[in-house]
Design a protein around this nucleic acid. Sequence first.
DNA 1: CCTGATTTGTGCAACAAAACACAATCGTGG
DNA 2: CCACGATTGTGTTTTGTTGCACAAATCAGG
Lengths: 206, 206
Amino acid sequence: MTRNPIPEIVIGRLPVYLRALTRLLEQGRQVTSSQELGERLGISAAQIRKDLSQFGEFGKQGTGYDIEFLVAKIQEILKVDRVWEVAVVGAGDVGHALVNYGGFHDRGFKIAQIFDNDPDKVGTSYKDIVVMDIAQMQEKIRKAGIKIAMLAVPASVAQEVVDQLVEAGVEAILNYAPVNLVVPPGVRVQYIDPSVHLQTMTYFLD
Amino acid sequence: MTRNPIPEIVIGRLPVYLRALTRLLEQGRQVTSSQELGERLGISAAQIRKDLSQFGEFGKQGTGYDIEFLVAKIQEILKVDRVWEVAVVGAGDVGHALVNYGGFHDRGFKIAQIFDNDPDKVGTSYKDIVVMDIAQMQEKIRKAGIKIAMLAVPASVAQEVVDQLVEAGVEAILNYAPVNLVVPPGVRVQYIDPSVHLQTMTYFLD
DNA sequence: CCTGATTTGTGCAACAAAACACAATCGTGG
DNA sequence: CCACGATTGTGTTTTGTTGCACAAATCAGG
Ligand SMILES: NC(=O)c1ccc[n+]([C@@H]2O[C@H](COP(=O)([O-])OP(=O)(O)OC[C@H]3O[C@@H](n4cnc5c(N)ncnc54)[C@H](O)[C@@H]3O)[C@@H](O)[C@H]2O)c1
Ligand SMILES: NC(=O)c1ccc[n+]([C@@H]2O[C@H](COP(=O)([O-])OP(=O)(O)OC[C@H]3O[C@@H](n4cnc5c(N)ncnc54)[C@H](O)[C@@H]3O)[C@@H](O)[C@H]2O)c1
């Protein structure tokens, strides 16, 4: 069975499954079913089964899924069965919160570098990582072979920083700045903008 | 033409259109077309037109859309033609970044209250907002009639805090904790989890 | 006032995703 | 070792979303 092009919407649900499964593991559970998982996530059991079946047969009829095994499989599919080094650009409030955040380690990521253009910030340490000058960014990222960046600079400079990141070989960008970015094909961008999320919900309020 | 149930996926794109249009306005532009907007956002022009047509006729054939007018219309549709008071729970790194963030004001939101359970934090000021004790949360939220909350507490206590928020009348929650929340019908939750976003992208890396 | 270049709004066709429903399989307990 | 309840994986149906293509409208220039 060769890998068909899997719909991106399916890929997007896998990390959510993974997060829920990890939580079940923490609660000491060993086995779960598509039904139980679906109830917790507000997703139909059939959908979960179909999503997983795109990648193989991971369950046992009559029993369900061995959680530890399924976690390992999804990690493998998502390529987070390794640790990716990540660069953070912008050592402001958001950059600080990200570097300080302990939740990346067991989910496949390690913040390896952080950059800023403010001379007052360059050289200071955030956790155990020293803030480096943006002028060195391309060289450092290229040298370390970093493919993933989180962008936490003001919106006004986001596009220019992105252009540099792409040139340095970055292929995945998580953008906190409230602007749409233009990137060449082959580079992926995801957006985190709390205002966008909130505005999606206000529509449904009275 | 009475309001039909508009697909949620359409609602979710409106804030993105709004953000791009606002940016065009800042750049001094007065008029745009579905084609231009689509190119900037990586969305087909037809889709943008169809999305907007769900709510009325906002454009002029041969000309395009008056940006200021369209912005006002979308703000109205999303109900962000007013300012919503928002409560933040958890005065840690994320809570701090949110309170400090200047980007909510012109997008329909104002952080009005912040709560924590750490006695060292209660009473201190973040920007011009005093951190209040979680014990007072329900009363304060109810009294202010707040309907929207941002949740920035550890995952382990997120569900219990959410239960309290819901009981206090909150109907929209933006959750930063990496857990799926269970809420009664009528309450909306959106999730921000950088690991989930990153894991969606690693699938496509080599 | 006519012509041509644009661009909207939308009916319809094509495509995609989700739900349904059930045979196949598994484990358990008698 | 058989029968039953549980649960998967999947072919089929249903539902939802996107793209296409064009009439209708608008504007500018001659
Ligand atoms: N704070 C939040 O909760 C929040 C929420 C949503 C979005 N955002 C967005 O995230 C981004 C960062 O927000 P923040 O609150 O951390 O802002 P901040 O001002 O605290 O930090 C921005 C940092 O970027 C640095 N910087 C500026 N120009 C740079 C450049 N050219 N190269 C490298 N570094 C540069 C600044 O020196 C500063 O340290 C902004 O785009 C903001 O709109 C923030
Ligand atoms: N920092 C990040 O970049 C980041 C990224 C993604 C997700 N998160 C998540 O966001 C949440 C907050 O992260 P953080 O970095 O700000 O953590 P943090 O530890 O800095 O802050 C958490 C705050 O919540 C408070 N708190 C704990 N229990 C509480 C309770 N029962 N009621 C009220 N307040 C309580 C703590 O006193 C603390 O001030 C966590 O769930 C974290 O996993 C953080």
